[in-house]
Nucleic acid binder design. Sequence first.
DNA 1: TGTACATCAGTGAACGCGCGTTCACTGATGTAC
DNA 2: TGTACATCAGTGAACGCGCGTTCACTGATGTAC
Lengths: 193, 193
Amino acid sequence: MRRSREDAARTRDKIVAAAAALFRARGIDAVSVADVMGEVGLTVGGFYKHFNSKDALVAEAIERASLESSLKKGGDAEEVLRAYLSWAHRAHPGRGCPVAALCSEVGHQSASTKRAFTHALQHFVAQVAALFPTKSRAQQLHAVAAVVGGLVLARGTNDEKLARDLLLAVSEEVLAQSSDRKSRSTRGKPDSP
Amino acid sequence: MRRSREDAARTRDKIVAAAAALFRARGIDAVSVADVMGEVGLTVGGFYKHFNSKDALVAEAIERASLESSLKKGGDAEEVLRAYLSWAHRAHPGRGCPVAALCSEVGHQSASTKRAFTHALQHFVAQVAALFPTKSRAQQLHAVAAVVGGLVLARGTNDEKLARDLLLAVSEEVLAQSSDRKSRSTRGKPDSP
DNA sequence: TGTACATCAGTGAACGCGCGTTCACTGATGTAC
DNA sequence: TGTACATCAGTGAACGCGCGTTCACTGATGTAC
């Protein structure tokens, strides 16, 4: 039966939020429209009162995920980086960075999905740049590639030691190579004799 | 009708090779058993004379891809790295690194697929370690994360400038931070005053 | 070496299943008077 | 403010489709004598 406009808007919002979590946790193709609607407590037929297609939801879910959770807000570079490369972030992709969650499968998705992913990536690059303002742009992009790559590879492997080593190595090295050189000496990493 | 043992072995080999290419190019879930058999010129029913399931093929295809094409063989570090982070490698995942091609979707696959991916990742880490023997293990893992992340993100975005910048930035920075410091000064990258 | 028979690689139709999407329907909400 | 009617959020069954897998069948290959 019909719901009030406020209810309908809330429903739409819940659908996007559920999709943003499920797509990141299980992948886009592996999550059905019925899965998303079930998560919200509704049946599948009503979905098309809110969206033209699953594809439209995917794009909106990625934009949402990007705005709410690419990087931890506040805190210094070290704190943010360690949270990003944490065991908890590895274990819970559904609440984490959408760039890391979707990076390799987005290449096989629709143009609108790629567009949304690109926005998320640009947003992530801007966040990393703000976190390391003294790095060159090349160093910032290098850091983006390393943190995303480190998290994704740590998630993809069942070799837990390798996963931990990857997360730790990337956070140590990105911080050590930061132009903020104070952290290098205090960490005492052997570099050159 | 029945084929000779040599023919059958060749067929099996062709199925694995076709699967290794298709899975990397289009993703595991998006490629059907019929797609793979069609690529070899056969019909779908015969597949199960060679493999117990699609899952068994996936694992074997990843192992195959890992052995034949993770990194360009021979050449110095700079040459290998620039080939890995090249526009051609971005454009042709089907012939490229399986770790980069499958990294984010492998998290949602079966245990045997994760196992095969882990082997591929371990192999890739060993190759990178051999390429940069003077780097510490943390620096080597950092390089692994950065090159895979750079390639995957360059593939995922439709912002071609950002894609080129990522590929270039990662190869420059990984080489610049190599303990082989000769390349740093010759490249003239502004780092610290 | 020849022959009779068992084997099995490959065919192509069929299976049950889950997908994205559509549709007739329901009944509370929103609107016009 | 009350009432009559149009709207539309949500239901749940149905649609066509492609998937992984199975199966009865074919006929050349491999083997036993």
